[in-house]
Simulated scan of single mutants.
Amino acid sequence: MYNLMVVDYDVATDRIFGALADVTRRDILTRTARAPESVSGLARHYAMSFAAVQKHVAVLERATLVTKERRGREQLVRADRETLHRAAELLQAYEQLWEQRVDAIADILSEEGTPS
């Protein structure tokens, strides 16, 4: 009766949203979306060890949310806008799915209120 879309996901999507589940990683992503920053520069912003920040960056990198580029002795971390765009598209697909469901419920309710 109603064509409700199905949202497609995969392992890469799980990695993206798993990485985004942590507040520190979201903050790192925000900072590196503004401008590339070295891992040591990122570490200065947090009350944790350099190694802990490196691990957060590694999770973001596995999820393809950031890339690292060596510049001399430093590694610059940069947000990957394409992956952020993919995540936004998935969230938009979920929003459309729920809008369709709300519309379907509204249609059912309006049919029930109409006398036969």
Rank of each mutant, 00 (worst) to 15 (best):
A106H: 12
D107M: 15
S49W: 11
A51M: 14
Q92Y: 03
L20K: 01
M48A: 06
L76Y: 08
R101Y: 02
V53P: 13
L97H: 00
R25A: 01
P36I: 00
I108A: 12
I108S: 08
D107R: 15
P36H: 01
A51C: 07
Q100N: 00
V53E: 02
D103S: 06
G41D: 10
T30Y: 01
P36N: 02
H85A: 03
W98P: 09
V39A: 02
K68R: 15
T32R: 13
V66G: 09
T64G: 01
R26D: 06
H56M: 00
T24P: 14
E82H: 09
V53F: 02
D107S: 15
D80Q: 08
E69S: 01
R34G: 15
A47T: 15
R78V: 14
W98N: 11
D103L: 06
R34Q: 15
T64A: 04
A106C: 08
S110T: 15
R34S: 13
L97Q: 01
R62F: 12
D107Q: 14
E37L: 09
T83D: 05
R70M: 01
I108V: 15
I105K: 11
H56K: 14
V77P: 04
E82I: 08
D103Q: 11
Q75T: 05
D22N: 06
A58R: 12
V102H: 08
A52V: 04
A58D: 13
L65T: 05
R78T: 13
K68Y: 10
A33L: 14
Q96S: 06
I28L: 10
H45M: 06
A88K: 07
R25V: 05
Q96T: 14
A35L: 15
A33S: 13
T64D: 12
Q100D: 01
H45D: 12
R25L: 04
R62S: 14
V23N: 09
A33R: 14
G41P: 04
L29N: 00
A93I: 01
Q96H: 09
A51Y: 07
A104Y: 12
A52K: 09
D27C: 06
R31I: 09
R70Q: 04
K55E: 05
R81H: 01
G72C: 02
A79M: 10
A106K: 12
R86C: 03
A58F: 06
L97S: 00
R81Y: 10
D103A: 03
Q75C: 00
A104K: 11
W98K: 04
D22S: 04
F50N: 06
L109Q: 14
T32E: 15
V53K: 03
L97A: 00
H56W: 02
R70H: 09
L20F: 03
E111I: 11
A93L: 00
L42Q: 14
M48L: 06
A47G: 08
E111L: 07
T32F: 12
L90D: 05
A58P: 11
S40D: 10
E111W: 11
A79T: 10
L91M: 04
H85V: 02
L91R: 07
A47Y: 07
L65M: 02
F50M: 08
A33I: 13
R81C: 05
R25Q: 05
G72T: 05
A106I: 14
